[in-house]
Design a protein around this nucleic acid. Structure first.
Lengths: 194, 194
DNA sequence: CAAGCAAACTAACAAGTGTTAGTTTTTTTG
DNA sequence: CAAAAAAACTAACACTTGTTAGTTTGCTTG
């Protein structure tokens, strides 16, 4: 695995994602980025077309990764609850591998220019697929009959915030975190004796 | 209630919060803000000291409101599960009244200059108080014996994301939303037949 | 109506922005 | 080792940024 060595462009994008996480796309200047790479700003342009291109690379590749992952889950014949558990794993896995990029995905997508609509379409479709799993789970008596949007919002908010949290717990392994998250998100925290 | 009419400064802060939500603090210029107010950028400075002051007003007042709200809940003698339900209400209430400001609280706090450390202290204390309620709930057999940080993170992520979601559902009343959220966050979504 | 004041204006500043052009240095490769 | 390619550099551009100074407008009030 990991066949190709990272190109200079890859390194720039990775460094940019780190800075974007700390201060957001707009607050990071090309001089900040160059300085972090140990070069001058103009040198960046030997490798990338524009600041905007960097943002696009970070966000769109992640968004497509999520889309692909959810499609694979949909193809399976797991129960709806099991599908939700797989979605949790998907988010934990992608986020652990790229916490920096996930910050941009969440907070800087509005600064996309040419690719903003494409991103929004991917996100819209993702949320709809996600909601469908919940709706089918309700119909199939796997999931409680509560407002599906509240459930969707609640789970997805947590998964989307993982990028803030995973870096602080780097000793935790993804398998165990996924298990605990699924437990809490799906079964709640209440020790009900009813 | 609402005794005093809003000052011009209040209006500027409110308009700024709206723009900050859309594009983030750094991407909003004083000329953007002035234009939205129908005046010239220089005129803003008759009412505010600096761009930074606007951000401070938005974020610190909200952070203090949360701190105050949690202190009140702690003073009560509710069960720990009931305290969590009150926290949900607190977030729903503050967020419904100021969705714009909540965006800055979540995404622009790192651009605070003089007040950044103060904000971080408030947030740190808030999370600790919150965690304490969970820990006590576990000891008291109200809450399942799962990793308390995962539970804290999961609930708090959802509550912190409310600002993204509440504006889309403006027909829903805060009482009902709080009920549904508490249900989902505390009891989960699983229709377990175990 | 005059005085006082809140709130707008124009003009300008110094610093910082993304990006380009052209050139030099360093690394790779036949 | 020479040639080619990759990657850095300096210098500069046109534009935007937050903010200040000084002035004018228009409403309120005695």
């Amino acid at each position: 695995m990991n066949l190709k060595p990272p190109t200079r462009k890859d390194e720039i994008i990775k460094t940019a994602a780190k800075l974007f996480k700390e201060k957001g796309y707009s607050a990071v200047t090309m001089r900040d980025l160059a300085s972090e790479m140990g070069i001058k700003a103009a040198s960046l342009y030997n490798h990338i077309k524009s600041k905007q291109e960097i943002l696009k690379e970070i966000i769109i590749s992640l968004a497509e990764e999520f889309t692909k992952g959810l499609q694979d889950i949909q193809k399976s014949n797991l129960s709806n609850i099991e599908k939700l558990q797989e979605i949790v794993k998907l988010h934990v896995s992608i986020t652990s591998q790229n916490t920096y990029g996930m910050a941009s995905l969440n907070n800087d997508w509005m600064h996309l220019e040419d690719n903003r609509d494409y991103y929004l379409k991917l996100r819209y479709n993702y949320e709809n697929e996600f909601r469908n799993i919940i709706v089918k789970g309700i119909k199939n008596n796997e999931i409680i009959s509560e407002n599906e949007d509240v459930m969707l919002f609640s789970i997805l908010s947590t998964l989307r915030s993982l990028y803030l949290w995973i870096p602080k717990k780097e000793d935790l392994d993804p398998e165990e975190l996924s298990r605990q998250l699924s437990q809490v998100l799906i079964n709640g925290i209440n020790k009900k004796i009813n």
